[in-house]
Design a protein around this nucleic acid. Structure first.
Length: 198
DNA sequence: GCATTAACTACCT
DNA sequence: AGGTAGTTAATGC
């Protein structure tokens, strides 16, 4: 989901900088803003009882986050954390609703975006339910690639560390490494100087 | 700091 | 028993 920066600003949006590892919002807080990334990347995550991390999503430039919570009266059930230094534009909930009310096309876009997220979340859950690590990794790669434009074979560079991949699909790094190599042998992906292309 | 490998353990069918 | 993921530790990039 992307809304023009000028439009967001004219409706009261504010640009804020976040440092790496800074929380943008936390679990159990009350959602109050629409967020859109101008520069940098963020992750949405949870921590389990043992303190180990599960990453729900990783988002970059021109992607929005937190929007789905604005339509509910529920608190966040995820944290949002800056992965890199970031510039993010935030728009108050009321202003966001005023904006989409006055621009019905944006309202439709919001629906489209939420639908797409729901679709891929469902696909992700199906893959995560599998005990096969290959399926989990390929599912994640399909998901990540769905945000990208071109669909060519190994055109998509995965800009995640092995650890981040592991945290996104609930595996250990070593398993991700082993399985990625296996998938390379089977020609599902390509690895060039430690980078994964899909 | 991140990626890889190896040797080991544990679990599951 | 065989296969596979997790654990630990050492090493390489």
């Amino acid at each position: 989901m992307k809304i023009e920066e000028d439009l967001l600003l004219s409706y009261g949006g504010e640009i804020k900088s976040y440092k790496q590892n800074e929380f943008i919002f936390r679990e159990d807080e009350k959602p109050a803003f629409y967020y859109q990334i101008i520069e940098g990347s963020i992750k949405e995550n949870n921590y389990n009882e043992l303190g180990s991390e599960f990453i729900q999503n990783i988002l970059g430039t021109d992607q929005s986050f937190g929007d789905s919570f604005l339509f509910l009266h529920k608190n966040y059930n995820i944290n949002a954390v800056a992965l890199t230094d970031c510039q993010i534009i935030k728009l108050k909930k009321d202003d966001f609703f005023r904006l989409i009310k006055e621009y019905p096309d944006l309202s439709v876009d919001t629906n489209k975006c939420l639908s797409q997220r729901l679709y891929f979340k469902t696909a992700m859950i199906q893959n995560l339910a599998s005990s096969l690590p290959e399926k989990r990794i390929l599912g994640l790669l399909d998901y990540l690639k769905s945000f990208h434009k071109d669909d060519d074979k190994f055109s998509f560079l995965v800009k995640l560390t092995r650890q981040q991949i592991a945290d996104l699909i609930g595996l250990r790094v070593e398993t991700v490494i082993r399985t990625a190599k296996k998938l390379e042998r089977e020609n599902f992906l390509k690895i060039d100087s430690r980078k994964i292309y899909y």
